[in-house]
Nucleic acid binder design. Structure first.
Length: 493
RNA sequence: GGCAUCGUGGCCGAGUGGCUAGGCGCAGCUCUGCAAAAGCUUGUACAGCGGUUCGAAUCCGCUCGAUGCCUCCA
């Protein structure tokens, strides 16, 4: 009945480094939590890649018929800037610099985040909770951890006691680290650190008088620690144990490791069945990061307004570019790679258009059911979008052959092909055909059609000077004429 | 220094113990008044050195190189 019932989906689980058959806790339902952005500046393209990977995964689950509760948070408090000594909140710091209220900063960049994701055609998550909206839940968790003896209070701050936790649990199992090694490798230079051990992490930090973002708590005015919000919100909306927890590779340690520790300290068992980590988007071979300035903003790609780019690229092209790599691989951004993706993307879209008007025959030379099966196999093998896309191009090849009369397709196969292509291209990959959503297209096309008509007359009269002038002038304003067998068409770049 | 990942043809990027991934570029062809666009055809690559094996780019070891994490980070 549902597609997922006859598919065996495998997911690479970062927790054990193995591809495992995915079985949700409750049949037909999936709980998925993904760490969202810290909204203290504009989202850069690297951030988008992680969220895009999970958007694709969310879309595929839905395509298979699962009911998914997809929670992606907004971090609007709790991240310390610089070292613990400074102890200033990232949001608060930015607010001071820009003379804004902290929540004004949060609002501005949350809006930016949503705007960009919308351009990329992201599906909204089921719930998008904020850290500041869950202070009470976070305080409750701290109390619980304190009660169970895995945390200690000192100078109005509360820290998680990693060594204590490691006595009866395994700290470091996600990132493959051993606490003894970590201790052995720590430099003993953090002199006035109030923590018992450098590995301990803050659950609650005391707010200094000048600190703007602060909340009352049993330990005095302060703010929650780095890793607590995700534990609080994932537990609240998905339960003590849920199916999938995702995020960027760079969050694996310490963030996700600490989440596991917090949840295990509270509930005594691991919170997540499948950990998924999306790999980094690099620029010039280096990780994109706001802090180092090695980053590119989505807006710069859409406008072409960046020294690295020779032209503007549409959101769908960028999306296509990213999905041509597997989500667990590092992907390097370059102008050449985007250019190549744009060509490929157009080829795919053209194929889709040709498919609509294809003539059918009694039999098929293209084994559509076998092809369809390969598409699903690709996606069921840990969401292998590059292989899926290769299969889509395989289909385009056949579509072109059918169009040119070198192959045939039956009506039944054509419908099957069209349904499957549309499902994967638009529903699962989330691509959009840019050429069918502009309002003034009708006016434009009638004007261009007129010019095409005039050019045809000139050509018929062998007045090539005039015909070439029309062609070249149109090209200069970005309208390319395409002379085909059945007349001339055009495309706007 | 520790932990982890990776090194594939001109570029991007899959995959894998023996069977053409794919996209782009280049070249050739078709089409065209000429172009462009489009379509077709074409590439035996897997860092280096050893080892295991009938057979490895794929497994093991070492060397070299790159990246990520170890501090906020998608």
């Amino acid at each position: 009945m549902h597609l997922y019932q006859d598919q065996e989906l495998k997911i690479y689980n970062s927790l054990n480094g193995k591809k495992e058959v995915f079985t949700p806790l409750n049949e037909g339902h999936i709980g998925m939590y993904v760490c969202g952005p810290t909204v203290y500046s504009n989202v850069h393209l690297g951030n988008c890649r992680t969220f895009m990977s999970f958007d694709m995964i969310f879309r595929y689950f839905r395509h298979l018929g699962y009911k998914v509760r997809y929670v992606r948070n907004i971090t609007d408090a709790g991240h310390l800037v610089d070292d613990a000594e400074d102890g200033e909140d990232k949001i608060a710091k930015k607010a001071r610099l820009e003379k804004l209220e902290p929540m004004e900063v949060v609002q501005r960049y949350t809006v930016d985040f949503h705007t960009i994701l919308q351009k990329f055609n992201f599906l909204p998550p089921s719930i998008e909770p904020t850290a500041t909206g869950h202070i009470i839940e976070q305080i409750e968790i701290i109390k619980d951890i304190l009660e169970k003896g895995y945390a200690y209070e000192i100078n109005d701050s509360v820290y998680f006691d990693v060594s204590k936790f490691n006595e009866d649990h395994e700290y470091g199992k996600l990132s493959g680290r051993k606490l003894e090694d970590m201790i052995a490798n720590t430099r003993e230079l953090t002199a006035q650190d109030e923590k018992k051990s450098p590995q301990d992490f803050a659950l609650w930090k005391k707010a200094e008088p000048q600190h703007i973002m602060r909340w009352p708590s049993p330990w005095g005015d302060g703010f929650p620690g780095w890793h607590l919000e995700c534990t609080a919100m994932s537990t609240k909306y998905l339960g003590e144990t849920f199916d999938i927890h995702g995020g960027g590779m760079d969050l694996k340690f310490p963030h996700h490791e600490c989440e596991i520790a917090q949840a295990e300290a509270c509930n005594g068992h691991s919170p997540v069945n499948y950990w998924m980590h999306a790999n980094m988007l690099t620029l010039n071979g280096k990780k994109m990061a706001k802090s180092t300035g090695n980053s590119i903003l989505p807006g710069e790609i859409f406008s072409g307004n960046n020294a690295l780019l020779s032209k503007a690229f549409s959101p769908s092209v960028v999306r296509f570019f990213m999905l041509q790599a597997h989500y667990t691989s590092i992907l390097d951004l370059s102008n050449d790679a985007l250019l190549a993706s744009e060509k490929g993307f157009n080829r795919l879209m053209d194929g889709l258009k040709i498919l609509k008007n294809l003539d059918t025959a009694k039999s098929s030379d293209f084994d559509v059911p076998a092809w369809k099966k390969k598409c699903y196999e690709a996606m069921n093998d840990d969401f292998n979008t590059p292989i899926l896309i290769a299969q889509l191009f395989e289909a385009v090849k056949h579509i072109n052959a059918i169009k040119e009369g070198r192959e045939n397709i039956s009506l039944e196969d054509k419908n099957e092909l069209q349904t499957t292509m549309n499902a994967f291209v638009f529903d699962v990959l989330g691509l959009e055909d840019k050429n069918d959503n502009e309002g003034d297209t009708d006016t434009l096309s009638s004007v261009v059609e007129l010019l095409i008509q005039l050019r045809k007359e000139a050509r018929d009269n062998k007045d090539f000077a005039t015909s070439d002038k029309i062609r070249d002038q149109l090209a200069a304003v970005g309208i390319q004429l395409k002379d085909g067998k059945e007349g001339t068409t055009f495309s706007v770049s």
